[in-house]
Design a protein around this nucleic acid. Structure first.
Lengths: 123, 123
DNA sequence: CAGTAGTCTTAGAAAGCAATAAGGCAACGC
DNA sequence: GCGTTGCCTTATTGCTTTCTAAGACTACTG
């Protein structure tokens, strides 16, 4: 069986479904405060696990688990040097993604603040 | 108490935590295949619930629930007209976000295909 | 070689999320 | 008014994710 799609409508539907599944999984990986924070910490370059652990105020196990999730999905990459492991973000467009998300959230917050302002000044 | 932060370090830490929490929640909302699909369907303009329901091949309840999640987080907006409700994406930058995500996933897939190719040709 | 620091893995408990099913509410047509 | 259509809500049950704790592995250090 070829992986190319031609003619089989339901197979194509399944493949289309798989694409949405992948995208959703990707977002779900970003959907944890600790992991978002890790990515932002890695914006300025690589960091060791211990370093991140300290910044996150989290124990070794938790830090490692979240790094593991990000690594398993190909978002992070680890490089061992002695006893330390240095992590980096593999695709810098991740930062672009975070930036767009920040913009969306910011204007959404500004909007709701404006609404709040109207409420408090008029009533 | 002012919402402005000055002097209280732990309060600032809490606020910083809240920001990561918000970003993570935002991504988690996008982290479901049906919701990703809904957003892509809304790329070309507004749609009624029944319309979406038909495209998603999903019952009224499920469709409504996912739309509800997106609406509650300010991503979608609903407008009633007769018995139908038309939904739209509030911030078009959402599409930019989806596009960046698509690019990241695409090159990640190409990379792994290249690795797969090396494996199969060499061994 | 024994001890230590750094990282990762696993298992089990707790929490959160999603699918289904059942019912409710609002607007329209007869 | 009565029934119908379209949409939303709630409750339940099952699944997935996350947290905590314990231990294991690897690479350095004396």
């Amino acid at each position: 069986m070829s992986s190319r799609s031609h003619g089989n409508a339901s197979a194509e539907a399944v493949q289309r479904g798989a694409v949405y599944q992948m995208k959703a999984e990707f977002f779900r990986v970003l959907g944890h405060p600790v992991r978002v924070r890790i990515l932002e910490l890695l914006r300025d370059g690589e960091r060791t696990v211990g370093d991140l652990q300290h910044e996150l105020q989290m124990d070794s196990s938790g830090t490692s688990q979240h790094l593991g999730v990000l690594r398993k999905h190909g978002i992070l990459e680890g490089r061992r040097e002695g006893t330390s492991v240095y992590y980096t973000v593999r695709d810098p467009r991740i930062f672009q993604l975070l930036e767009v998300a920040r913009q969306i959230l910011t204007s959404s917050l500004i909007e709701s603040q404006a609404v709040l302002g109207e409420l408090t000044t008029r009533n």
